[in-house]
Nucleic acid binder design. Structure first.
Length: 219
DNA sequence: GTCCAGGGCCTAC
DNA sequence: GTAGGCCATGGA
């Protein structure tokens, strides 16, 4: 199993090349993007982020000081904008109160402790917390999403109803704890899923990954 | 018009 | 602990 997870990573890298995630100008921008892209096309999250950047400097205090109407209007393109405005304020308050508004001040804390803190915040679930840990803080935490479960179920490595934690554990037991690899691997899985294998198992069975790997997809 | 996107919360069982 | 409903915009 370990070899398969490593092999698939190298195949994806060969097919798609390095993705260089996360597209952002700062770690804090990663945090904002992680919330804005929840169940939302990145294009729309990006649009919201750009609008927000037009009206306020991207730091926790500035966003906390923004009036509600401006915040709502800025992030409207990302969808779920009322919920997301609330979530943004919550994590900004958390960062301002606990880390002086600077993610660099989180460096001294352990990954497990930080993950627990993030998960305790309203609006931060496992995928968002792990995206922040990996892409903003460079911690070796594997990010699992719907694409991950769909792809590896089709390749016969896990059950479609596997839980987030089960899948994450499987990846992290099979791979060396290297943030650079986790970073690229998750990005590649998402890019791969977008390209061809979003809906159809039959398309997935014909995709370049399966052709290159020679893996039989699960029935 | 329908489907879905780089989820997570709340409620009911 | 988990299944279902809900949140909302924009592109295919």
């Amino acid at each position: 199993m370990t070899a398969a997870f490593t092999d698939i990573y190298h195949r994806l890298l060969e097919i798609y090349g390095p993705q260089g995630w996360w597209p952002a100008d700062s770690p804090f921008e990663v945090v904002l993007g992680a919330i804005l892209t929840q169940n939302t096309a990145w294009r729309n999250a990006e649009s919201a982020l750009a609008s927000l950047k037009d009206v306020v400097p991207l730091d926790p205090e500035s966003i906390l000081n923004l009036d509600e109407e401006t915040l709502l209007n800025s992030i409207r393109p990302s969808g779920y904008y009322r919920q997301k405005a609330h979530k943004l304020r919550i994590i900004c308050r958390y960062l301002a109160d606990n880390y002086d508004g600077d993610l660099a001040n989180m460096e001294t804390k352990g990954t497990a402790e930080l993950r627990g803190e993030l998960l305790d915040l309203h609006g931060i679930g496992p995928e968002t917390a792990d995206s922040i840990l990996l892409y903003a803080l460079n911690r070796p935490v594997f990010v699992v999403d719907a694409y991950t479960i769909r792809l590896f179920e089709r390749l016969g490595h896990l059950s479609i109803d596997s839980s987030y934690n089960q899948v994450q554990e499987m990846f992290m037991k099979s791979l060396e704890p290297d943030p650079a690899v986790y970073n690229e691997y998750h990005a590649l899985i998402v890019i791969h899923g977008k390209e061809l294998c979003r809906k159809s198992r039959s398309l997935c069975s014909q995709c370049r990954l399966v052709e290159m790997c020679g893996y039989e997809t699960a029935a």
